[in-house]
Design a protein around this nucleic acid. Structure first.
Lengths: 137, 137
DNA sequence: TTATGTGCAAAGCGTTTGCACTTTA
DNA sequence: TAAAGTGCAAACGCTTTGCACATAA
């Protein structure tokens, strides 16, 4: 049997969770840290990283795969109710959520053809958002 | 008018390209460096990074988005003939190419609903490869 | 009271850069 | 011979870690 993890409910963790929940959006660690610092002057960014890592392992929070060379993004995990994907505008950097899972048929095909059992997917689309398309005209 | 880039055909660049072409697979920078070092004892990893960056900007090589906290992968770009996606086995770490683009209908929907013009996509599926599924039984 | 979490500063790791030197064209 | 590329070592940015101290249970 696994020793159950005895996890503590610290002020810092509460702040991080509140921040993630109330934002409801993807945020990078620097942003989260900035917001929390207003409520706890002394908090260390190492604590933010540590808590986010734990929360991710528990599935409370999701770590996102955005552009390669950018800091990590996190968002509150709505318990897999509906997966969403991200659209990243390559002109203005906007990140737009796209709430729809049309990947199912693709995933079925992959399982059939490759014998690969898909558990998760990371899908990011890059392109131009509506505003930038208009601005470019 | 843009000043045309006067690019040089160095031994180092040739080695890198040969390595990428003949492998025909995704490789991380450390791997590429290791292989090239057999042919050029003195090459610096900074040169590998520099060349890969330039080759990527020219579209000769493609930078891949695998797991978040892992080093960058590159692969020779077959000129967009057929895009392929990657399946990453979360048990053994195998990376399997999946040559098929069933994303088109999804992309069409996104353009209609969001006014977002998709130029590129990064799609990675995580799960269990055939071997690991069998091993787990 | 004690295991767990914290803050701090230092280290880690992949990647980039400044600079003097070499090479390509 | 001049512009472009190189090797080296130092710097970078994001993230993790070691350690002494603080805190939740």
């Amino acid at each position: 049997m696994d020793t159950p993890a005895k996890e503590r409910n610290t002020k810092q963790k509460r702040l991080i969770l509140d921040c993630m929940k109330s934002s409801g959006r993807h945020m990078n660690v620097e942003e989260i840290y900035g917001i929390i610092k207003k409520h706890d002057e002394k908090i260390s960014i190492a604590t933010v990283y540590r808590n986010l890592r734990m929360l991710e392992q528990q599935g409370v929070v999701k770590k996102l795969y955005m552009a390669e060379d950018s800091p990590s993004f996190y968002e509150f995990n709505d318990n897999g109710e509906h997966t969403h994907h991200h659209l990243v505008c390559s002109r203005c950097g906007a990140i737009i959520d796209f709430e729809e899972d049309l990947l199912e048929s693709l995933e079925k095909t992959i399982e059939e053809k490759k014998g690969f059992k898909i558990k998760d997917h990371r899908v990011v689309f890059y392109g131009l958002c509506r505003e930038c398309r208009e601005a470019e005209k």
